[in-house]
C-alpha cells in the first residue's frame, strides 16, 4: 500500500475558495524575469476570432 506524502491543503483551498485573491507567479522563477523595454502588452479583447471587432 502506498499513500501520498504531499499536503494538498493549499490546493484544496484554491478549489474550495475560488474567489480568494492572490497573485499567481511562478514560484521557482521569482526574480529571474527581466522586464522588456517594449511597452507592456495588454490583453486585447474582441480579437478572439481574428475579426478585429
Amino acid at each position: 500500500m502506498f499513500a501520498s506524502n504531499v499536503d494538498l491543503t493549499s490546493v484544496r483551498n484554491a478549489l474550495e475558495n475560488p474567489h480568494g485573491a492572490e497573485i499567481v507567479a511562478f514560484p521557482d522563477l521569482h526574480g529571474s524575469f527581466v522586464a522588456s523595454a517594449a511597452p507592456s502588452a495588454r490583453p486585447v479583447h474582441g480579437l478572439r476570432l481574428g475579426l478585429g471587432l
Binding site: L29, F33, S40
Partner: peptide, 27 residues
C-alpha cells in the same frame, strides 16, 4: 507549468508572449 501557460492564454485571448512573461514571470 505548461498547463499554467495554457490557462493564462485562455484567460487573455490575443495575448502576446511578453504579456505572459509579465503575468507569470516565466523566462
Amino acid at each position: 507549468r505548461r498547463t499554467l501557460i495554457l490557462a493564462d492564454i485562455d484567460q487573455y485571448p490575443g495575448t502576446t508572449q511578453t504579456g505572459i512573461m509579465e503575468r507569470l514571470g516565466i523566462h
